[in-house]
């Protein structure tokens, strides 16, 4: 007799649990306001980008086309993947001493793992995170970037 009742209570509890599940999906079906999909290319304009977002490594330049990089190479030694190459020149600074200036700060985006060690260890805060995230290109060579802009010079007072 006990198993006889169990048969029916099993059916009852089973159907009840199934209906509970259906009430959840039904609730979402009839409330389209809760849709969370981001419609990406359309919302490009109003896309909320966090200021700390790690899109790529950039070297900020001010309006006089001046950056803060001294070419010391600490970022290069700290990079775990060798995605930074610093090529620096030595020039006369006028008073007879040789001064190191940066020629090219080469950044291989294709090798970068976005660990942030270059930016953290930079003694003169020359590097920063950029918010650009659409990195797809047709040619791999385009992923190798020179971070200092052509004709740029170092900001006065940075050693």
């Amino acid at each position: 007799m006990n198993s006889f009742f169990k048969y029916f209570t099993d059916i009852y509890s089973g159907v009840k649990s199934l209906l509970t599940g259906m009430s959840v999906t039904g609730k979402y079906f009839f409330s389209p306001g809760q849709i969370v999909t981001e419609q990406y290319p359309e919302n490009r304009k109003k896309l909320l980008m966090q200021e700390r977002f790690k899109g790529e490594v950039i070297m900020p330049h001010d309006q006089n086309n001046q950056h803060r990089c001294t070419g010391c190479g600490i970022c290069e030694t700290n990079c775990p993947n060798g995605s930074i190459e610093v090529i620096s020149n030595r020039i006369d600074s006028g008073d007879g001493k040789k001064v190191r200036i940066i020629d090219k700060h080469i950044y291989h985006l294709s090798m970068c793992t976005f660990c942030g060690l270059c930016i953290k260890t930079c003694p003169s805060d020359a590097l920063a995170w950029g918010q650009q995230f659409e990195h797809a290109v047709f040619d791999r060579a385009k992923l190798t970037k020179t971070l200092n802009k052509p004709g740029s010079s170092i900001l006065k007072g940075i050693e």
Partner: peptide, 13 residues
């Protein structure tokens, strides 16, 4: 479309 709405998505659009 139905499954998309049940799953809080937009579905084909």
């Amino acid at each position: 479309k139905v499954c998309a709405f049940m799953q809080n998505r937009v579905g084909p659009n």
